[in-house]
């Protein structure tokens, strides 16, 4: 089902102006797959709703949305890194490090806001270092972030093992259960972010510049776009938002866990590409990324409902990833 969501139906020309060259449909396809993707997500939800009585319960839907909203925090910056033809595979590790670090500081009786600030500052520092190295030395971000993935995961596990299985303080545990208008605060945040992203992608010159950089970095540089600054900012945003997601996850699972955020980076890549981003840059849509995450969550939830072995989930994620990218590549080739 993941293979039919890349159909380019929209003739939205708003974003077409900046795409200087390359694959011709890059500009046209902007926002074009959000509608079909929403339709698919709705279809899956309706099928599940009709066939499984357990699906429609408030607690199940709430838990799906809550899970998606936390992962959404992490995909926020990640999507825009992908727009610029870079990739940040360290998100899962930064996610774990930030959450565990904040938990560890709170166990040591630090002030709540100070601990959160320090943890997020560490995440921002990591993002800055990665962005700086990529920009200054022209390093392939895939290679660099595979290294930092291991490095940061190691640091995070050192902290987690120091903590043992100790539970975080009550104040921190209740963070994830904070409600706003009777809905989990992260879900509200996700909804707000999607609306902001809509405007950002439609109106902002910065987003056009980012697409331009992804399409053709040299040419963007010649046109006076500050490529380095934008890239470093995106890497920092990616690390900080991943850290934010990590803080909520740590608060949700209530104790240090070395498996936290393991493999998250590949879920992110899958969801972002389902949502319309491309490994070759120049495209990406936060609304699509959110829908991609939601689709993955629904499919996995549905598999549990239908008693399909949970171990088969990996197979489905893998197949979905390949199917989406294959379709994306074939469609692009035909049009461009």
């Amino acid at each position: 089902m993941g293979s039919t969501n890349q159909t380019v139906t929209s003739t939205d020309h708003h974003a077409g102006g900046t795409a200087a060259s390359g694959r011709g449909d890059a500009g046209r396809s902007f926002g074009g797959n959000v509608l079909p993707l929403s339709a698919i997500v709705a279809l899956v939800a309706i099928v599940l709703f009709a066939t499984q009585p357990n699906f429609g319960t408030a607690s199940n839907i709430n838990s799906i949305l809550f899970q998606t909203s936390i992962e959404f925090l992490a995909i926020l910056g990640f999507t825009y890194v992908m727009v610029m033809r870079e990739i940040d595979l360290s998100v899962g590790s930064v996610f774990a490090l930030t959450g565990t670090l904040m938990g560890a500081l709170l166990v040591d009786d630090w002030n709540f806001w100070l601990a959160g600030g320090i943890a997020l500052a560490v995440a921002a520092g990591i993002g800055f270092c990665q962005g700086f190295l990529v920009v200054r030395f022209g390093i392939n971000s895939l290679m660099l972030t595979i290294g930092s993935l291991l490095l940061i995961r190691g640091c995070s596990n050192v902290i987690a093992n120091d903590l043992g299985g100790r539970t975080y303080p009550r104040e921190f545990r209740s963070l994830a259960r904070t409600d706003l208008f009777d809905i989990r605060i992260t879900i509200v945040f996700m909804a707000v972010c999607v609306l902001i992203a809509w405007g950002f992608q439609k109106r902002s010159a910065l987003f056009r510049k980012m697409c331009f950089i992804g399409e053709n970095m040299r040419s963007a540089q010649v046109h006076g776009i500050r490529v380095g600054r934008i890239k470093i900012a995106a890497f920092m945003a990616s690390a900080v938002t991943a850290g934010l997601g990590g803080i909520f996850t740590a608060s949700r699972i209530t104790h240090a866990d070395v498996r936290m955020g393991l493999g998250l980076e590949f879920v992110m890549v899958t969801a972002a590409i389902i949502g319309g981003a491309s490994l070759y840059g120049g495209r990406g849509d936060l609304r699509g990324s959110a829908l991609g995450l939601l689709l993955l969550a629904l499919v996995l939830n549905g598999m549990i409902m239908f008693d399909i072995e949970p171990v088969f989930q990996q197979f489905v994620i893998g197949a979905l990833l390949i199917a989406t990218v294959t379709f994306d590549t074939l469609v692009n080739r035909r049009n461009g």
Binding site: F266, V269, E309, F315, I317, I322, V325, T329, L330
Partner: peptide
């Protein structure tokens, strides 16, 4: 054959193979 990015293909196949192993 199809010209799909090798990172994605081999990553997807990694997941699928691990899934088969689990089953």
């Amino acid at each position: 054959g199809l010209g799909i990015n090798h990172l994605i293909v081999t990553l997807g196949v990694l997941y699928m193979t691990r899934g088969i192993i689990e089953v």
